[in-house]
Amino acid sequence: MNNINPNLNTNSFQKLKKFLLSKSKYNFCNFIFFVILISLIFNLLTWIFINSNWKVVTSNLNLYAFGSFPIDQQWRPTLWFFSLLSITFITVYGPKWNWLRKNLIFGWIGTVPLGIYLLNGGLGLNPVMTRHWGGLTLTILITSCSILFSLPIGILLALCRRSSIFLIQKLCSFYIDVMRAVPLIAVLFFGQLLIPLFLPVGLEIDRVWRAIIAFTFFVSAYIAEDIRGGLQSIPNNQIEAAKSLGLNKYQINIFILIPQALRVALPAITNHLIGLFQNTSLMSILGLMELLGVSRSILANPEYIGQYIEVYIWLASVYWLFCTIMAFVSKKLEQKMTINKGY
């Protein structure tokens, strides 16, 4: 432990090389850990390829991906996945044309209505009820919708928390603090079971939308705190400079403060969004058929009783893959944003 290296910029390849070439007295210790690690991985691989029965996964891939979406309509969620993939690809590896970069955000926003349209149908497509939505499709839909709604609400809350009007400030602070104090499952429980009690008789909100509303409530409070941190990092003289240029309050907020605050808060926000994606699995406790929920129903099929180990490991890797992609994209975005700073 006494060799502390504050310089962490060396990449992992260099580190590996260093490790292999170094003659440190810790090499023995390293070696033992290395052996343990290899044996662990070996055991895991033998289990995965020899001792386990992946039929519960392979024969139900459709269910994991689309839930009970009608089979002849499954091209729709597939199309949506592809559009999401391609826009991710363009964001990360796409050309550096200015107009493309500027409009990419609209592309991202557009994927959500596109997804809803493709899943829901109407306007030329066969309507599909929300009860048929499920699996990974539902997980991604809940995540993307909640992100889309919670970002503007979070920004608004952050601005309100800094508002000069006493009451607005107090109300927003109260909301943010309470939301950050309660566990997510309680908020989701509220969304699923108690929201109907607060609505007028006869007004019904669909179950999926109630989940999205609950997630939005929850995440926007966290995002608001992230953005508030970002806002605090902006020096006051920028506001004064903007004022002297004749910009009014709204213009200052929209053109000066929010973009900078977003840039500062981006890592924190993406962390919360990755958390949001993971936490959609909580909906299975409340009986929604998202990825984990569908898996639990598959496990009830008499054919697959007791094969949960395969299912859990499969789910863990699917979630891990998606979260890693999200983390990767956000990292790339951060890099791009710092490059485009322009000063």
């Binding site: 024969s59 459709n62 839930g67 979406f69 499920g134 569908v294 129903s297 009830a300 099929n301 008499p302």
Partner: peptide, 10 residues
Amino acid sequence: PGFSFIERDG
């Protein structure tokens, strides 16, 4: 099982 579960086709 037997009372309500999800089939392979959803």
